[in-house]
Measured scan of single mutants.
Amino acid sequence: MEVRTIKVFTTVDNINLHTQVVDMSMTYGQQFGPTYLDGADVTKIKPHNSHEGKTFYVLPNDDTLRVEAFEYYHTTDPSFLGRYMSALNHTKKWKYPQVNGLTSIKWADNNCYLATALLTLQQIELKFNPPALQDAYYRARAGEAANFCALILAYCNKTVGELGDVRETMSYLFQHANLDSCKRVLNVVCKTCGQQQTTLKGVEAVMYMGTLSYEQFKKGVQIPCTCGKQATKYLVQQESPFVMMSAPPAQYELKHGTFTCASEYTGNYQCGHYKHITSKETLYCIDGALLTKSSEYKGPITDVFYKENSYTTTIK
């Protein structure tokens, strides 16, 4: 009895394709271990004539594949690729409408935090270190965002349907971005203890939790000093293409032309909904596939993004 075979390709990165001759009487799992086709788990399936010449994702289970996976995804987590594939199996079914010149995501599976993050990423200057993220990001900007969303979920250790947080998501993504040249110098002034300067680099240099107003941050924000008295913390120097200011959701007025974009969060910790506000020729609110415009805006804002380049204080 002759062994019926077909020729397929296996890959971990969709760049390096490895030619395989597979036995049609055995499952993919018996031949390769966990195997995925377009995100779908085909591990328990036997090869079919229609699979001839198709590319299958496999887990990096030998040295060659491990090197290829690390170079593309910059992670050695053995569960990463499987999590990416199972997320992709959902995100490829989502709709990605162009809204006001940006790629958004039609609401499904509690994905409003991903839509808000995706919209924000198209408006701030950011370059990702893992080629996987950078490639998928370019495709997302062009309207094909399924891979990018699935990668975000995998890097953030999230599953489809789980509630997510924009600030946490951005923080994970910033860790995989090139923020080497970003720098922030802060000064804390206390009447009792004097003053202390701190220099922050990388992710810490672009994120701040405690106030939404970048102007206020430049002037000074009140913080408790270690001595128990009130101290003032203010920005001395900022070198970065953008800054992200966050605070627990509270009524906040966004003035046209003073910011790049913002995240609105309605609801409580267990259950809520994100919308995205962007400042173009007027203010726009993007909620999944829905767009509304207004000249002014007041609502429960939790993150505001500002364009920056270089700032030095005039406070002496």
Score class of each variant (00 low, 15 high):
residue 3 V to A: 15
residue 10 T to Q: 09
residue 11 T to N: 04
residue 23 D to T: 15
residue 24 M to V: 10
residue 25 S to R: 13
residue 27 T to M: 08
residue 31 Q to G: 05
residue 33 G to A: 06
residue 40 A to V: 13
residue 40 A to M: 13
residue 42 V to P: 04
residue 52 E to G: 11
residue 53 G to Q: 10
residue 54 K to N: 12
residue 58 V to P: 07
residue 59 L to Q: 10
residue 59 L to S: 12
residue 60 P to H: 09
residue 64 T to F: 10
residue 66 R to M: 15
residue 66 R to D: 09
residue 66 R to T: 10
residue 67 V to F: 14
residue 68 E to K: 11
residue 77 D to N: 08
residue 85 M to L: 13
residue 86 S to Y: 10
residue 87 A to W: 02
residue 88 L to M: 05
residue 89 N to W: 14
residue 90 H to S: 11
residue 95 K to W: 11
residue 95 K to M: 12
residue 98 Q to C: 15
residue 105 I to E: 06
residue 106 K to M: 12
residue 112 C to Q: 09
residue 114 L to K: 02
residue 115 A to N: 04
residue 116 T to A: 12
residue 123 Q to V: 02
residue 128 F to L: 04
residue 134 Q to R: 13
residue 134 Q to M: 09
residue 138 Y to W: 14
residue 140 A to T: 09
residue 141 R to C: 14
residue 143 G to F: 02
residue 144 E to T: 07
residue 144 E to S: 11
residue 150 A to K: 08
residue 155 Y to L: 05
residue 158 K to S: 01
residue 159 T to R: 14
residue 159 T to I: 15
residue 160 V to L: 03
residue 167 R to C: 00
residue 167 R to T: 03
residue 170 M to L: 13
residue 173 L to R: 04
residue 173 L to F: 09
residue 173 L to V: 05
residue 174 F to W: 07
residue 174 F to V: 04
residue 177 A to G: 06
residue 181 S to L: 09
residue 183 K to H: 10
residue 189 V to P: 03
residue 191 K to E: 15
residue 192 T to E: 13
residue 194 G to I: 00
residue 194 G to Q: 07
residue 195 Q to Y: 10
residue 196 Q to H: 15
residue 197 Q to C: 03
residue 198 T to A: 08
residue 199 T to E: 15
residue 203 V to L: 07
residue 205 A to S: 08
residue 205 A to T: 06
residue 210 G to F: 00
residue 212 L to K: 08
residue 213 S to W: 03
residue 213 S to R: 00
residue 216 Q to D: 15
residue 218 K to A: 01
residue 225 C to F: 04
residue 227 C to N: 03
residue 233 K to L: 15
residue 236 V to R: 01
residue 240 S to H: 00
residue 242 F to A: 05
residue 244 M to A: 02
residue 245 M to I: 01
residue 247 A to D: 07
residue 249 P to T: 00
residue 250 A to V: 14
residue 253 E to H: 11
residue 253 E to K: 07
residue 254 L to I: 02
residue 257 G to A: 03
residue 259 F to H: 00
residue 263 S to V: 08
residue 265 Y to N: 04
residue 266 T to Y: 08
residue 267 G to K: 08
residue 268 N to Q: 06
residue 270 Q to Y: 14
residue 275 K to W: 10
residue 277 I to M: 09
residue 283 L to W: 00
residue 283 L to R: 01
residue 286 I to G: 01
residue 288 G to V: 02
residue 291 L to Y: 15
residue 293 K to E: 14
residue 294 S to M: 15
residue 304 V to P: 03
residue 304 V to C: 06
residue 304 V to E: 06
residue 305 F to A: 01
residue 306 Y to M: 01
residue 313 T to K: 14
residue 314 T to S: 15
residue 315 I to N: 15
